[in-house]
Deep mutational scan, measured.
Amino acid sequence: EETGVRVELAEEDDGEKIAIKLWLRIEDIKKLKGKYKDNEAIEFSFDLERDVPEDVAQEMVESGYVCEGDHKTMAKAIKDRVSLIKRK
């Protein structure tokens, strides 16, 4: 499903790190509610043992990086990427 958002690794995952750096990349602004630039990327750290995707997305909303209306879309994108990383 195309959401307009993609999360990718910002650094090589060696399988050892607990906290990883990720990029939340805006790919299609028409599919989102907030005002973003095409190909805008937000770099953030995610602790694989402690962080919760919904909470991280909420922090982005509170910091003004993400529109409240896009919270669920961002949280799902983060959750999907993190579950792929954890499965390795």
Rank of each mutant, 00 (worst) to 15 (best):
K37E: 11
R87L: 06
A19P: 10
T3I: 00
K17C: 08
N39M: 10
D80K: 10
K31M: 10
T73H: 06
L32P: 08
G15V: 05
G4E: 06
Q58T: 12
W23D: 10
G34K: 09
S83C: 08
A19G: 10
D80C: 01
L84K: 14
V52G: 03
K21C: 00
D47Y: 01
I20Y: 06
K79F: 10
K76M: 09
E40M: 14
R87K: 12
R81L: 02
V82M: 04
K79W: 07
V7S: 01
K33E: 10
G15D: 10
E49C: 07
S63A: 15
D28K: 13
E16V: 09
M74W: 03
A57G: 00
R87Q: 11
D51T: 02
K72H: 12
E16R: 12
G34S: 03
F46M: 06
I78N: 02
E40F: 14
E43T: 08
S83K: 12
V7Y: 08
I78L: 03
R87A: 08
P53I: 01
D14M: 07
I18C: 14
K21E: 01
A57M: 03
K35S: 12
I85N: 02
V5L: 08
K86W: 02
I26R: 12
D14N: 10
E27C: 15
E59W: 12
I18G: 15
G64F: 02
E62V: 08
G15C: 08
E11H: 07
E8V: 06
H71Q: 12
L84C: 12
D28A: 04
I85L: 12
I78Y: 01
L22A: 09
L9M: 13
V66P: 02
P53D: 01
E12A: 11
V5M: 15
M74Q: 02
D70T: 01
E49N: 11
A10S: 08
C67H: 15
A41H: 11
W23P: 11
K30P: 07
A75L: 09
K33R: 09
H71I: 15
K17P: 03
F46T: 00
D70G: 02
I42C: 02
V82D: 04
A57K: 00
H71R: 13
D55F: 06
G69I: 12
V82L: 05
W23K: 15
K86A: 04
D28S: 08
I85K: 01
I85R: 00
R25Q: 10
K33M: 03
I29A: 15
E16D: 10
E27P: 08
Y65H: 11
D38I: 12
K76F: 04
R50H: 13
E40G: 09
D47T: 01
M60G: 01
A57D: 01
W23N: 14
L32T: 05
D47R: 00
A19R: 15
I29T: 15
A10P: 04
F46V: 01
A57T: 05
K17H: 09
L24M: 06
T73S: 08
E8Y: 07
R6T: 12
C67E: 11
Y36E: 05
K30V: 03
D47L: 03
D70A: 05
V61Q: 03
K79P: 00
V5W: 13
A41G: 08
A19N: 14
V5G: 00
V5I: 13
D80G: 01
I29W: 11
V66H: 01
P53Y: 01
I42F: 11
V82P: 03
L22G: 13
L84P: 06
K37D: 09
D14P: 08
L24F: 06
D55P: 01
E8M: 06
L84H: 11
C67P: 04
L32D: 04
V52Y: 08
V5R: 02
L32V: 07
D14S: 09
A41D: 09
E68R: 09
D28N: 11
W23L: 15
L84S: 12
D38C: 11
V5K: 04
E43N: 11
L9G: 04
L48F: 05
Y36I: 04
D14A: 10
